[in-house]
Simulated assay, not measured.
Amino acid sequence: MPYAAYVFDAYGTLFDVHAAVRHHAGDVGPEYQRFSELWRAKQLEYSWTRALMGAYRDFWQLTEEALDYTFQRIPEVDRSLRAKLLDAYWKLDCYPEVPAVLRSLKARGARVAILSNGAPAMLKSAVDNAALDTVIDDIFSVDALRTYKTAPAVYDVVTTSYRLYPGSVSFQSSNRWDVAGATKFGFRTVWINRTGMPDEYADLGPSLILPTLEALE
């Protein structure tokens, strides 16, 4: 095995963050894509600003607050959908290739783990819903540290727990900012660029860029 552990970001990498709104697109209406994108953008923004302020709230609280903001910004969407959308977020679809890729890595003897901003209960629900509980060895949440990526201490959770040097860990994320943080920490990084976004953080480039997880080695 080239790497002792393969560690995955959860949201956007293993699980489709836009599935919650997409499953209710008919009720949300023609603005469903914009609605979903804004919800995700504010969720991330809140995590970064609270990490910088040292004013932690767990990711589920931020998800709720971001949704409430989105309803205010796009008032034509019926606010009575709030409970349905939040419930759907606990059961996000995983991307089609994910189960086979994780099983293959595990069969080759690697540790397979999640390192996520998500709250523990959120992550467990997503993993169980996708039937990935038998292939994922560990779920590492920032909740134990009460801060968010890209704080170096978050990535250090993996190396400390597994007693590995950073270079022995392959870290996969669809979030370019997350890849930058993990690269700075010393992980081998793979950017899963599912939507063909332009590159950024030129001084903190990934080791590999893939459109999906299928070609991961």
Results as ranks from 00 to 15, higher is better:
20 A>T: 07
20 A>P: 04
21 V>H: 08
23 H>A: 13
24 H>G: 00
25 A>R: 15
25 A>T: 06
25 A>W: 13
25 A>S: 14
27 D>W: 13
27 D>N: 07
28 V>P: 10
29 G>H: 13
29 G>E: 06
31 E>S: 10
32 Y>F: 15
32 Y>G: 00
32 Y>L: 12
33 Q>M: 12
33 Q>R: 15
34 R>E: 15
34 R>A: 14
36 S>Q: 11
36 S>R: 13
37 E>H: 12
38 L>K: 12
38 L>W: 12
38 L>T: 10
39 W>S: 07
39 W>I: 12
39 W>L: 06
40 R>T: 04
41 A>K: 15
43 Q>P: 01
43 Q>G: 01
43 Q>M: 01
44 L>I: 15
45 E>H: 07
46 Y>T: 02
46 Y>C: 09
46 Y>V: 03
46 Y>M: 05
47 S>M: 04
47 S>G: 01
47 S>I: 02
48 W>I: 04
48 W>F: 15
48 W>K: 01
50 R>L: 07
50 R>H: 08
51 A>D: 08
52 L>D: 12
52 L>P: 05
53 M>N: 06
55 A>E: 15
55 A>N: 13
55 A>V: 04
55 A>M: 13
56 Y>G: 05
56 Y>K: 09
59 F>E: 03
60 W>A: 04
61 Q>N: 09
62 L>Y: 03
62 L>H: 04
62 L>P: 04
63 T>W: 02
63 T>A: 04
63 T>I: 02
64 E>Q: 08
65 E>L: 13
65 E>M: 13
67 L>A: 06
67 L>V: 05
68 D>L: 09
68 D>I: 12
69 Y>N: 03
69 Y>W: 14
70 T>E: 09
70 T>H: 06
71 F>C: 03
71 F>S: 01
72 Q>R: 10
72 Q>V: 09
72 Q>P: 01
72 Q>D: 12
73 R>I: 03
73 R>P: 01
73 R>A: 14
77 V>T: 04
78 D>C: 01
78 D>Y: 05
78 D>M: 02
79 R>Q: 15
79 R>L: 07
81 L>I: 13
81 L>D: 12
82 R>F: 11
88 A>W: 09
89 Y>P: 01
90 W>C: 00
90 W>G: 00
90 W>Q: 07
90 W>S: 00
91 K>C: 08
91 K>I: 00
91 K>L: 13
92 L>Y: 07
93 D>P: 06
96 P>G: 10
96 P>Q: 13
97 E>H: 12
98 V>G: 08
98 V>T: 14
98 V>Y: 03
99 P>Y: 08
99 P>G: 09
100 A>L: 11
100 A>N: 11
101 V>Q: 05
101 V>P: 03
102 L>M: 08
102 L>F: 10
102 L>D: 05
102 L>P: 07
102 L>V: 08
104 S>I: 03
104 S>P: 00
104 S>L: 10
